[in-house]
Nucleic acid binder design. Structure first.
Lengths: 233, 233
DNA sequence: CTGAAACCTTGATCTCGGTCAAAGTATGTC
DNA sequence: GACATACTTTGACCGAGATCAAGGTTTCAG
Protein backbone atom coordinates (compact mmCIF):
# COMPACT_ATOMS: atom_id res chain seq x y z
CA UNK A 1 0.00 0.00 0.00
CA UNK A 2 1.18 3.48 -0.89
CA UNK A 3 0.60 4.90 2.56
CA UNK A 4 2.64 2.21 4.19
CA UNK A 5 5.46 2.71 1.75
CA UNK A 6 5.50 6.46 2.33
CA UNK A 7 5.63 5.88 6.05
CA UNK A 8 8.58 3.57 5.43
CA UNK A 9 10.26 6.22 3.28
CA UNK A 10 9.77 8.91 5.92
CA UNK A 11 11.06 6.75 8.72
CA UNK A 12 14.51 7.70 10.04
CA UNK A 13 17.00 5.21 8.67
CA UNK A 14 18.47 4.68 12.11
CA UNK A 15 15.09 3.37 13.30
CA UNK A 16 14.43 0.96 10.45
CA UNK A 17 16.10 -2.09 11.84
CA UNK A 18 15.63 -1.24 15.51
CA UNK A 19 14.07 -3.87 17.75
CA UNK A 20 12.45 -1.17 19.90
CA UNK A 21 10.03 -0.52 17.05
CA UNK A 22 8.65 -4.06 17.25
CA UNK A 23 7.19 -4.20 20.75
CA UNK A 24 9.18 -1.52 22.48
CA UNK A 25 8.44 2.12 23.16
CA UNK A 26 8.86 3.16 19.54
CA UNK A 27 6.05 0.91 18.32
CA UNK A 28 3.76 3.67 19.61
CA UNK A 29 5.12 6.31 17.21
CA UNK A 30 4.20 7.14 13.62
CA UNK A 31 6.86 8.05 11.06
CA UNK A 32 6.43 11.75 11.76
CA UNK A 33 6.96 11.35 15.49
CA UNK A 34 9.85 8.98 14.86
CA UNK A 35 11.72 11.54 12.79
CA UNK A 36 11.17 14.25 15.41
CA UNK A 37 12.51 11.87 18.04
CA UNK A 38 15.40 10.66 15.93
CA UNK A 39 16.73 14.23 15.73
CA UNK A 40 16.78 14.50 19.51
CA UNK A 41 17.96 10.97 20.21
CA UNK A 42 21.46 9.91 21.12
CA UNK A 43 22.92 6.45 21.01
CA UNK A 44 25.43 5.42 23.65
CA UNK A 45 27.47 2.42 24.73
CA UNK A 46 27.67 1.82 28.45
CA UNK A 47 30.06 -0.72 29.89
CA UNK A 48 29.15 -3.29 32.54
CA UNK A 49 29.07 -1.90 36.07
CA UNK A 50 28.29 1.71 35.12
CA UNK A 51 25.50 3.45 37.01
CA UNK A 52 22.80 4.91 34.76
CA UNK A 53 21.70 8.27 36.14
CA UNK A 54 17.92 8.40 36.16
CA UNK A 55 15.78 11.40 35.63
CA UNK A 56 16.59 13.34 32.52
CA UNK A 57 15.97 10.74 29.80
CA UNK A 58 13.89 7.86 28.52
CA UNK A 59 16.07 5.16 26.94
CA UNK A 60 15.46 2.13 24.81
CA UNK A 61 17.77 -0.71 25.70
CA UNK A 62 19.06 -1.91 22.31
CA UNK A 63 21.26 -4.63 23.81
CA UNK A 64 22.36 -5.80 27.25
CA UNK A 65 20.81 -6.07 30.69
CA UNK A 66 20.16 -3.40 33.36
CA UNK A 67 19.42 -4.03 37.04
CA UNK A 68 17.51 -1.85 39.52
CA UNK A 69 18.80 -2.11 43.08
CA UNK A 70 17.52 -0.94 46.44
CA UNK A 71 19.82 -0.66 49.47
CA UNK A 72 19.15 -1.42 53.13
CA UNK A 73 21.18 -0.95 56.29
CA UNK A 74 24.10 -3.38 57.04
CA UNK A 75 25.11 -3.40 53.36
CA UNK A 76 22.16 -5.57 52.44
CA UNK A 77 20.80 -4.98 48.98
CA UNK A 78 18.04 -6.35 46.79
CA UNK A 79 17.62 -6.28 43.02
CA UNK A 80 14.05 -5.05 42.47
CA UNK A 81 13.94 -5.19 38.69
CA UNK A 82 15.76 -6.45 35.59
CA UNK A 83 15.44 -4.89 32.14
CA UNK A 84 16.34 -6.69 28.92
CA UNK A 85 16.43 -5.36 25.34
CA UNK A 86 14.16 -4.12 23.75
CA UNK A 87 12.72 -2.84 27.03
CA UNK A 88 12.95 0.82 27.96
CA UNK A 89 14.02 2.81 31.03
CA UNK A 90 12.48 6.00 32.32
CA UNK A 91 9.23 7.05 33.94
CA UNK A 92 7.07 10.09 34.57
CA UNK A 93 6.73 11.02 38.29
CA UNK A 94 9.62 10.43 40.67
CA UNK A 95 9.82 7.15 42.60
CA UNK A 96 9.29 7.84 46.29
CA UNK A 97 12.22 5.65 47.29
CA UNK A 98 15.61 5.88 45.59
CA UNK A 99 16.48 3.07 43.19
CA UNK A 100 19.86 2.66 41.57
CA UNK A 101 20.01 1.60 37.91
CA UNK A 102 23.21 -0.12 36.78
CA UNK A 103 24.37 -1.84 33.59
CA UNK A 104 24.85 -5.55 34.34
CA UNK A 105 26.46 -6.30 30.98
CA UNK A 106 27.70 -3.92 28.32
CA UNK A 107 24.60 -2.02 27.24
CA UNK A 108 23.61 -0.03 24.15
CA UNK A 109 21.02 2.69 24.74
CA UNK A 110 19.01 5.01 22.53
CA UNK A 111 17.99 7.96 24.70
CA UNK A 112 15.42 10.74 24.29
CA UNK A 113 15.00 13.88 26.39
CA UNK A 114 12.34 13.47 29.03
CA UNK A 115 10.52 16.62 27.92
CA UNK A 116 9.80 15.36 24.39
CA UNK A 117 8.38 12.04 25.57
CA UNK A 118 6.25 13.68 28.20
CA UNK A 119 4.86 16.23 25.75
CA UNK A 120 4.05 13.43 23.29
CA UNK A 121 2.26 11.58 26.08
CA UNK A 122 -0.12 14.54 26.33
CA UNK A 123 -0.82 14.34 22.61
CA UNK A 124 -0.78 10.62 21.90
CA UNK A 125 -3.07 8.18 23.70
CA UNK A 126 -1.15 5.45 21.93
CA UNK A 127 2.06 6.40 23.73
CA UNK A 128 0.29 6.72 27.08
CA UNK A 129 -1.22 3.29 26.49
CA UNK A 130 2.21 1.84 25.74
CA UNK A 131 3.61 3.27 28.95
CA UNK A 132 0.66 1.95 30.96
CA UNK A 133 1.11 -1.47 29.39
CA UNK A 134 4.83 -1.47 30.13
CA UNK A 135 4.32 -0.37 33.73
CA UNK A 136 1.66 -3.04 34.27
CA UNK A 137 4.01 -5.68 32.88
CA UNK A 138 6.64 -4.62 35.37
CA UNK A 139 4.04 -4.71 38.14
CA UNK A 140 3.00 -8.24 37.17
CA UNK A 141 6.63 -9.32 37.17
CA UNK A 142 7.24 -7.64 40.51
CA UNK A 143 4.29 -9.61 41.91
CA UNK A 144 5.74 -12.84 40.54
CA UNK A 145 8.88 -12.14 42.55
CA UNK A 146 6.96 -11.08 45.64
CA UNK A 147 5.36 -14.53 45.53
CA UNK A 148 8.70 -16.23 44.96
CA UNK A 149 10.46 -14.33 47.75
CA UNK A 150 7.60 -14.73 50.20
CA UNK A 151 6.69 -18.36 49.65
CA UNK A 152 9.13 -20.31 47.47
CA UNK A 153 12.10 -22.40 48.67
CA UNK A 154 15.64 -21.69 47.53
CA UNK A 155 15.56 -24.36 44.81
CA UNK A 156 12.18 -23.19 43.51
CA UNK A 157 13.52 -19.64 43.28
CA UNK A 158 16.61 -20.69 41.34
CA UNK A 159 14.53 -22.80 38.93
CA UNK A 160 12.08 -19.92 38.40
CA UNK A 161 15.00 -17.56 37.84
CA UNK A 162 16.55 -19.72 35.11
CA UNK A 163 13.24 -19.93 33.25
CA UNK A 164 12.72 -16.18 33.56
CA UNK A 165 16.16 -15.51 32.09
CA UNK A 166 15.53 -17.97 29.27
CA UNK A 167 12.35 -16.22 28.14
CA UNK A 168 13.77 -12.71 28.50
CA UNK A 169 17.29 -13.02 27.17
CA UNK A 170 16.02 -13.68 23.65
CA UNK A 171 12.28 -13.00 23.46
CA UNK A 172 12.02 -14.11 19.85
CA UNK A 173 13.07 -17.76 20.10
CA UNK A 174 12.94 -19.03 23.69
CA UNK A 175 16.40 -20.42 23.56
CA UNK A 176 17.37 -23.27 25.88
CA UNK A 177 21.04 -22.26 25.61
CA UNK A 178 22.07 -18.89 26.96
CA UNK A 179 24.70 -17.05 28.92
CA UNK A 180 23.74 -15.94 32.42
CA UNK A 181 24.04 -12.15 32.46
CA UNK A 182 24.38 -12.05 36.27
CA UNK A 183 27.15 -13.15 38.63
CA UNK A 184 26.28 -15.54 41.48
CA UNK A 185 26.29 -12.54 43.82
CA UNK A 186 23.76 -10.71 41.64
CA UNK A 187 21.55 -13.79 41.38
CA UNK A 188 21.66 -13.98 45.18
CA UNK A 189 20.68 -10.31 45.47
CA UNK A 190 17.81 -10.95 43.09
CA UNK A 191 16.53 -14.10 44.80
CA UNK A 192 17.00 -13.00 48.41
CA UNK A 193 19.57 -15.77 49.01
CA UNK A 194 23.32 -16.01 49.59
CA UNK A 195 25.99 -16.71 46.97
CA UNK A 196 26.63 -20.11 48.52
CA UNK A 197 23.01 -21.23 48.36
CA UNK A 198 22.69 -20.15 44.72
CA UNK A 199 25.85 -22.08 43.88
CA UNK A 200 24.64 -25.21 45.70
CA UNK A 201 21.22 -25.12 44.01
CA UNK A 202 22.80 -24.74 40.58
CA UNK A 203 25.10 -27.72 41.17
CA UNK A 204 22.06 -29.70 42.34
CA UNK A 205 20.19 -28.91 39.11
CA UNK A 206 23.32 -29.91 37.19
CA UNK A 207 23.90 -33.22 38.99
CA UNK A 208 20.19 -34.02 38.58
CA UNK A 209 20.59 -33.62 34.82
CA UNK A 210 18.12 -30.75 34.52
CA UNK A 211 20.71 -28.27 33.24
CA UNK A 212 24.29 -28.23 32.02
CA UNK A 213 26.77 -25.54 33.02
CA UNK A 214 29.81 -24.68 30.93
CA UNK A 215 32.31 -22.10 32.02
CA UNK A 216 30.19 -21.03 35.09
CA UNK A 217 27.95 -18.77 32.99
CA UNK A 218 26.89 -20.78 29.95
CA UNK A 219 23.60 -22.53 30.77
CA UNK A 220 21.88 -25.21 28.74
CA UNK A 221 18.40 -26.36 29.75
CA UNK A 222 18.34 -30.15 29.28
CA UNK A 223 14.82 -30.78 30.56
CA UNK A 224 12.52 -27.77 30.56
CA UNK A 225 9.51 -29.78 31.84
CA UNK A 226 11.40 -30.89 34.94
CA UNK A 227 12.69 -27.37 35.45
CA UNK A 228 9.10 -26.09 35.36
CA UNK A 229 8.09 -28.76 37.89
CA UNK A 230 10.69 -27.36 40.25
CA UNK A 231 9.29 -23.82 40.15
CA UNK A 232 6.63 -24.58 42.75
CA UNK A 233 3.70 -22.78 41.15
CA UNK B 1 -15.22 32.34 40.34
CA UNK B 2 -18.24 31.82 38.13
CA UNK B 3 -16.73 28.94 36.19
CA UNK B 4 -15.81 27.12 39.34
CA UNK B 5 -19.28 27.57 40.73
CA UNK B 6 -20.90 26.31 37.55
CA UNK B 7 -18.67 23.29 37.64
CA UNK B 8 -19.80 22.72 41.21
CA UNK B 9 -23.43 23.10 40.17
CA UNK B 10 -23.00 20.65 37.29
CA UNK B 11 -21.25 18.07 39.42
CA UNK B 12 -23.34 15.01 40.28
CA UNK B 13 -24.49 15.36 43.86
CA UNK B 14 -23.35 11.84 44.63
CA UNK B 15 -19.75 12.83 43.78
CA UNK B 16 -19.63 16.04 45.83
CA UNK B 17 -18.44 14.60 49.09
CA UNK B 18 -16.59 11.62 47.63
CA UNK B 19 -13.00 11.06 48.72
CA UNK B 20 -12.16 9.59 45.31
CA UNK B 21 -12.36 13.09 43.87
CA UNK B 22 -9.51 14.31 46.06
CA UNK B 23 -6.60 12.16 44.94
CA UNK B 24 -8.39 9.16 43.51
CA UNK B 25 -9.38 8.26 39.99
CA UNK B 26 -12.13 10.88 39.83
CA UNK B 27 -9.74 13.78 40.39
CA UNK B 28 -8.91 13.33 36.68
CA UNK B 29 -12.46 14.15 35.50
CA UNK B 30 -14.18 17.45 34.80
CA UNK B 31 -17.80 18.05 35.79
CA UNK B 32 -19.04 16.97 32.38
CA UNK B 33 -17.20 13.65 32.49
CA UNK B 34 -18.27 13.15 36.09
CA UNK B 35 -21.95 13.42 35.22
CA UNK B 36 -21.58 11.00 32.32
CA UNK B 37 -19.86 8.57 34.66
CA UNK B 38 -22.32 9.09 37.49
CA UNK B 39 -25.13 7.88 35.23
CA UNK B 40 -23.29 4.63 34.53
CA UNK B 41 -21.90 4.14 38.04
CA UNK B 42 -23.22 1.78 40.66
CA UNK B 43 -22.49 1.80 44.33
CA UNK B 44 -22.25 -1.50 46.19
CA UNK B 45 -21.53 -2.87 49.62
CA UNK B 46 -19.36 -5.97 49.74
CA UNK B 47 -18.91 -7.92 52.95
CA UNK B 48 -15.57 -9.16 54.26
CA UNK B 49 -14.34 -12.33 52.59
CA UNK B 50 -16.17 -11.84 49.29
CA UNK B 51 -14.19 -12.32 46.10
CA UNK B 52 -14.30 -9.34 43.74
CA UNK B 53 -14.55 -10.58 40.17
CA UNK B 54 -12.08 -8.66 38.05
CA UNK B 55 -12.44 -7.73 34.47
CA UNK B 56 -15.65 -5.92 33.70
CA UNK B 57 -15.35 -2.82 35.89
CA UNK B 58 -13.15 -0.11 37.37
CA UNK B 59 -14.08 0.61 40.99
CA UNK B 60 -13.24 3.29 43.49
CA UNK B 61 -12.86 1.90 46.98
CA UNK B 62 -14.93 4.30 49.12
CA UNK B 63 -14.21 2.45 52.34
CA UNK B 64 -12.53 -0.75 53.47
CA UNK B 65 -9.51 -2.79 52.41
CA UNK B 66 -9.01 -5.20 49.49
CA UNK B 67 -6.23 -7.79 49.14
CA UNK B 68 -4.74 -9.30 45.97
CA UNK B 69 -3.58 -12.89 46.40
CA UNK B 70 -1.55 -15.29 44.30
CA UNK B 71 -1.64 -19.03 44.88
CA UNK B 72 1.17 -21.61 44.69
CA UNK B 73 1.24 -25.40 44.96
CA UNK B 74 0.90 -27.05 48.44
CA UNK B 75 -1.72 -24.50 49.47
CA UNK B 76 0.88 -21.79 49.83
CA UNK B 77 -0.32 -18.30 49.07
CA UNK B 78 1.06 -14.79 49.05
CA UNK B 79 -0.69 -11.43 49.27
CA UNK B 80 0.79 -9.38 46.41
CA UNK B 81 -1.07 -6.13 46.98
CA UNK B 82 -3.29 -4.23 49.40
CA UNK B 83 -5.72 -1.48 48.39
CA UNK B 84 -7.12 1.10 50.80
CA UNK B 85 -9.77 3.79 50.21
CA UNK B 86 -9.73 6.03 48.19
CA UNK B 87 -7.67 3.80 45.91
CA UNK B 88 -9.20 2.17 42.84
CA UNK B 89 -9.30 -1.30 41.34
CA UNK B 90 -9.22 -2.21 37.68
CA UNK B 91 -6.71 -2.10 34.86
CA UNK B 92 -6.47 -2.11 31.09
CA UNK B 93 -4.74 -5.23 29.64
CA UNK B 94 -5.13 -8.58 31.35
CA UNK B 95 -2.56 -9.68 33.93
CA UNK B 96 -0.61 -12.65 32.58
CA UNK B 97 -0.90 -14.54 35.85
CA UNK B 98 -4.20 -14.90 37.69
CA UNK B 99 -4.62 -12.79 40.81
CA UNK B 100 -7.56 -13.11 43.18
CA UNK B 101 -9.05 -9.90 44.63
CA UNK B 102 -10.93 -10.26 47.90
CA UNK B 103 -12.54 -7.87 50.38
CA UNK B 104 -10.55 -8.03 53.64
CA UNK B 105 -13.05 -5.89 55.57
CA UNK B 106 -16.53 -4.78 54.57
CA UNK B 107 -15.98 -2.63 51.49
CA UNK B 108 -17.97 0.06 49.71
CA UNK B 109 -17.30 0.36 45.99
CA UNK B 110 -18.32 2.80 43.27
CA UNK B 111 -17.99 0.95 39.97
CA UNK B 112 -17.90 2.06 36.33
CA UNK B 113 -18.12 -0.08 33.21
CA UNK B 114 -14.72 -0.86 31.79
CA UNK B 115 -15.70 0.39 28.34
CA UNK B 116 -16.44 3.97 29.46
CA UNK B 117 -13.16 4.35 31.34
CA UNK B 118 -11.15 2.93 28.50
CA UNK B 119 -12.83 5.20 25.94
CA UNK B 120 -12.16 8.20 28.19
CA UNK B 121 -8.51 7.14 28.41
CA UNK B 122 -8.31 7.59 24.63
CA UNK B 123 -9.71 11.11 24.93
CA UNK B 124 -8.22 12.39 28.16
CA UNK B 125 -4.45 12.52 28.75
CA UNK B 126 -5.29 13.56 32.29
CA UNK B 127 -6.97 10.22 32.95
CA UNK B 128 -4.16 8.27 31.31
CA UNK B 129 -1.71 10.20 33.44
CA UNK B 130 -3.66 9.35 36.58
CA UNK B 131 -3.62 5.67 35.71
CA UNK B 132 0.10 5.77 34.97
CA UNK B 133 0.72 7.52 38.29
CA UNK B 134 -1.39 4.98 40.16
CA UNK B 135 0.31 2.02 38.49
CA UNK B 136 3.76 3.43 39.24
CA UNK B 137 2.79 3.91 42.88
CA UNK B 138 1.79 0.27 43.06
CA UNK B 139 5.07 -0.70 41.39
CA UNK B 140 7.07 1.34 43.91
CA UNK B 141 5.17 -0.31 46.75
CA UNK B 142 5.68 -3.75 45.22
CA UNK B 143 9.42 -3.02 45.11
CA UNK B 144 9.37 -2.00 48.77
CA UNK B 145 7.95 -5.42 49.58
CA UNK B 146 10.35 -7.23 47.28
CA UNK B 147 13.14 -5.65 49.32
CA UNK B 148 11.45 -6.55 52.60
CA UNK B 149 10.77 -10.17 51.57
CA UNK B 150 14.21 -10.67 50.08
CA UNK B 151 16.40 -9.05 52.69
CA UNK B 152 14.58 -8.09 55.90
CA UNK B 153 14.31 -10.20 59.06
CA UNK B 154 10.94 -11.21 60.51
CA UNK B 155 10.90 -8.37 63.05
CA UNK B 156 11.90 -5.78 60.45
CA UNK B 157 9.05 -6.98 58.23
CA UNK B 158 6.47 -6.72 61.01
CA UNK B 159 7.68 -3.24 61.99
CA UNK B 160 7.56 -2.08 58.34
CA UNK B 161 4.10 -3.57 58.00
CA UNK B 162 2.70 -1.67 60.98
CA UNK B 163 4.05 1.62 59.65
CA UNK B 164 2.66 0.89 56.19
CA UNK B 165 -0.79 0.23 57.66
CA UNK B 166 -0.60 3.39 59.76
CA UNK B 167 0.05 5.63 56.75
CA UNK B 168 -2.53 3.93 54.51
CA UNK B 169 -5.46 3.28 56.83
CA UNK B 170 -6.14 6.99 57.15
CA UNK B 171 -4.06 8.96 54.63
CA UNK B 172 -5.27 12.32 55.91
CA UNK B 173 -3.98 12.27 59.49
CA UNK B 174 -1.31 9.59 59.99
CA UNK B 175 -3.00 8.19 63.02
CA UNK B 176 -0.96 6.31 65.62
CA UNK B 177 -4.10 4.46 66.76
CA UNK B 178 -5.79 2.15 64.30
CA UNK B 179 -7.47 -1.19 63.91
CA UNK B 180 -5.52 -3.85 62.00
CA UNK B 181 -7.65 -4.78 58.99
CA UNK B 182 -5.89 -8.14 58.58
CA UNK B 183 -5.94 -11.32 60.66
CA UNK B 184 -2.62 -12.79 61.81
CA UNK B 185 -2.91 -15.35 59.01
CA UNK B 186 -3.30 -12.57 56.43
CA UNK B 187 -0.38 -10.62 57.86
CA UNK B 188 1.66 -13.82 57.57
CA UNK B 189 0.61 -14.26 53.94
CA UNK B 190 1.60 -10.69 53.26
CA UNK B 191 4.99 -10.84 55.00
CA UNK B 192 6.02 -14.32 53.86
CA UNK B 193 6.03 -15.59 57.47
CA UNK B 194 3.90 -17.95 59.59
CA UNK B 195 1.08 -16.98 61.94
CA UNK B 196 3.20 -17.95 64.93
CA UNK B 197 6.15 -15.76 63.95
CA UNK B 198 3.88 -12.76 63.35
CA UNK B 199 2.30 -13.29 66.76
CA UNK B 200 5.69 -13.59 68.48
CA UNK B 201 7.04 -10.44 66.82
CA UNK B 202 3.96 -8.45 67.78
CA UNK B 203 4.25 -9.55 71.43
CA UNK B 204 7.92 -8.61 71.31
CA UNK B 205 7.07 -5.10 70.10
CA UNK B 206 4.45 -4.88 72.84
CA UNK B 207 6.72 -6.07 75.68
CA UNK B 208 9.40 -3.66 74.43
CA UNK B 209 6.92 -0.81 74.80
CA UNK B 210 6.97 0.16 71.12
CA UNK B 211 3.27 -0.58 70.59
CA UNK B 212 0.17 -1.41 72.62
CA UNK B 213 -2.33 -4.04 71.56
CA UNK B 214 -5.94 -4.04 72.74
CA UNK B 215 -8.36 -6.75 71.76
CA UNK B 216 -5.87 -8.42 69.33
CA UNK B 217 -6.60 -5.94 66.55
CA UNK B 218 -6.48 -2.46 68.06
CA UNK B 219 -2.94 -1.12 67.67
CA UNK B 220 -1.48 1.98 69.26
CA UNK B 221 1.99 3.15 68.24
CA UNK B 222 3.73 4.31 71.41
CA UNK B 223 7.09 5.16 69.91
CA UNK B 224 7.12 5.76 66.18
CA UNK B 225 10.84 6.63 66.09
CA UNK B 226 11.81 3.28 67.63
CA UNK B 227 9.40 1.51 65.28
CA UNK B 228 11.11 3.18 62.32
CA UNK B 229 14.51 2.10 63.69
CA UNK B 230 13.30 -1.48 63.60
CA UNK B 231 12.37 -1.36 59.90
CA UNK B 232 15.94 -2.03 58.78
CA UNK B 233 16.14 0.46 55.91
C1' DC C 1 54.97 -18.75 32.92
C1' DT C 2 53.88 -16.33 37.38
C1' DG C 3 51.15 -13.89 40.38
C1' DA C 4 47.07 -11.40 41.64
C1' DA C 5 42.31 -10.40 41.60
C1' DA C 6 37.73 -11.74 41.01
C1' DC C 7 34.59 -15.19 41.00
C1' DC C 8 32.79 -19.77 42.18
C1' DT C 9 32.35 -24.26 44.77
C1' DT C 10 32.24 -27.25 48.68
C1' DG C 11 32.25 -28.54 53.54
C1' DA C 12 31.25 -27.81 58.64
C1' DT C 13 28.48 -25.55 61.80
C1' DC C 14 24.98 -22.37 63.55
C1' DT C 15 20.59 -19.85 63.81
C1' DC C 16 16.26 -17.76 62.52
C1' DG C 17 12.05 -18.83 61.63
C1' DG C 18 9.15 -23.00 60.61
C1' DT C 19 6.56 -27.00 62.49
C1' DC C 20 4.06 -29.37 65.90
C1' DA C 21 1.36 -29.19 69.97
C1' DA C 22 -1.48 -27.29 73.49
C1' DA C 23 -3.84 -23.87 75.76
C1' DG C 24 -6.08 -19.15 75.91
C1' DT C 25 -9.67 -15.73 74.27
C1' DA C 26 -13.41 -13.72 71.86
C1' DT C 27 -17.94 -14.07 69.71
C1' DG C 28 -22.07 -16.10 68.66
C1' DT C 29 -25.85 -19.76 69.06
C1' DC C 30 -28.96 -22.65 71.34
C1' DG D 1 -24.90 -20.93 81.09
C1' DA D 2 -22.91 -24.37 77.94
C1' DC D 3 -20.96 -25.19 73.77
C1' DA D 4 -18.89 -24.42 69.25
C1' DT D 5 -16.06 -21.94 66.14
C1' DA D 6 -12.55 -19.05 64.77
C1' DC D 7 -8.62 -16.71 65.99
C1' DT D 8 -4.41 -15.94 68.79
C1' DT D 9 -0.63 -16.93 71.93
C1' DT D 10 3.08 -19.60 73.85
C1' DG D 11 6.37 -23.40 74.30
C1' DA D 12 9.48 -27.22 72.61
C1' DC D 13 11.87 -28.82 68.89
C1' DC D 14 13.61 -29.03 64.07
C1' DG D 15 15.50 -27.93 59.57
C1' DA D 16 16.44 -24.86 55.42
C1' DG D 17 19.41 -21.73 54.46
C1' DA D 18 22.97 -18.50 56.54
C1' DT D 19 27.61 -18.05 58.15
C1' DC D 20 32.35 -19.24 58.44
C1' DA D 21 36.25 -21.25 56.28
C1' DA D 22 39.08 -23.16 52.77
C1' DG D 23 40.24 -24.29 48.31
C1' DG D 24 39.39 -24.24 43.11
C1' DT D 25 38.91 -21.83 38.57
C1' DT D 26 39.24 -18.13 35.29
C1' DT D 27 41.22 -14.05 33.48
C1' DC D 28 44.50 -10.84 32.81
C1' DA D 29 48.91 -8.14 33.43
C1' DG D 30 53.59 -8.30 33.28
Amino acid sequence: MAIGQNAQADMPSICRSCEARRNGLCSAFNACQLSELAKASSRQEVSAGTELPDGETYSNILSGVVKLTRKLSNGRQQIVGLHFAPDFLGRPFEPRRPVRAEAVTNVTLCSFPRSIIERMMQESPRLSGKIIEHTLEQLDEARDWITALGRKTASERVASFLLMIAVNIDPARHSTDFELPLTRAEIADFLGLTIETVSRELTLLRTDGVIEIANKRQISLKNVARLEDRCGD
